[in-house]
């Protein structure tokens, strides 16, 4: 799996937030008395995973995956760590790739509940920690009142993974934290720093040198670097990078990531347009 990271658009709104809300720490309610009768929750969870894993992904199929996870997770017997983090991943995907903000918010909130429940079963586990941070980011992005707390959550989750050098999602922890640092205000309000963001994106590229999403955000960092430090050579470098890994004739989607790649390409074009 790879994906994720559109978050941090909210980061600029951390100064003077309209309100300070906390990202939910809720877990799934105890449903021990729910009888299984002819339902086989573990099988439904497997089908939900299969629906997500079928590529190229489509929004319709990932929505089905989400519905199946929701149904399976009504039953205590299906609530294994494995099922819970995969359910959180499905929700994160919809929160990222749906174009309907109401739907995105609903799935981000559902996903954080799954991630919280997974972390209750396995504290500090990599997959759930990663998606917990990512989902907190989406919640902050969709409702800026959660922005400050979302940043704290992302920082705590990604640092936990980075400090233990735990890679996930092709340099995911460094990519997620790096993008946040690129876009957040600097101290004392928040943790923004172009230098630190760029360093973390370099680390993400060390972990997954060919992953297009890492190049997309590194190009963003280079364009910022070129502008803020008056070093036009970094602009050229960013353009070459985008051309090679995302937009050029030889740029290819990683196998199974055609849907996501098309979205990254759109972002790459928008980045170039904004930095003509």
């Amino acid at each position: 799996m790879g994906l994720i990271v559109a978050l941090a658009a909210f980061a600029a709104l951390l100064v003077f937030p309209a309100a300070c809300k906390q990202v939910s720490t809720e877990t799934l309610h105890n449903n021990a008395n729910k009888e299984e009768t002819d339902v086989k929750p573990a099988e439904i969870a497997l089908d939900a995973t299969a629906a997500f894993d079928e590529t190229p992904r489509t929004l319709e199929r990932v929505r089905i995956s989400s519905s199946m996870f929701a149904r399976a997770l009504e039953y205590e017997s299906a609530r294994s760590y494995e099922t819970l983090w995969k359910a959180a991943r499905t929700e994160a995907w919809i929160a990222e790739y749906s174009t309907d903000n109401v739907e995105r918010e609903r799935h981000a909130n559902r996903g954080i509940t799954y991630a919280n429940t997974a972390l209750k079963l396995k504290e500090g586990a990599a997959e759930a920690t990663f998606f917990h941070g990512v989902l907190a980011g989406f919640i902050g992005d969709l409702d800026h009142d959660y922005g400050l707390d979302a940043v704290s959550n992302i920082e705590a989750d990604m640092k936990l993974l980075m400090d233990s050098d735990t890679d996930f999602a092709n340099g995911g922890p460094w990519r997620v934290f790096g993008v946040l640092q690129l876009r957040a205000p600097g101290p004392p309000v928040s943790i923004g720093s172009l230098r630190n963001g760029k360093k973390n994106l370099e680390k993400a590229l060390e972990k997954a040198p060919d992953w297009p999403e890492n190049h997309l955000y590194m190009a963003e960092a280079e364009l910022m670097w070129a502008s803020e430090k008056d070093k036009p050579e970094f602009k050229d470098q960013a353009r070459e990078r985008l051309e090679k890994y995302l937009l050029g004739a030889d740029a290819r989607a990683p196998a199974g990531y055609e849907t996501e790649f098309a979205v990254w390409q759109e972002k790459a074009r928008a980045l170039l347009e904004a930095n003509k």
Partner: peptide, 30 residues
């Protein structure tokens, strides 16, 4: 706009780095 980055320029000895950074109390804590 970002005083942390100004401080990093001094540490990294970048060309054109400032000699000093002027920080308020909250930023000094950071």
């Amino acid at each position: 706009d970002n005083l942390a980055d100004a401080g990093y320029e001094i540490i990294d000895e970048e060309d054109g780095a400032p000699d000093f950074v002027l920080v308020d109390r909250a930023t000094l804590d950071v």
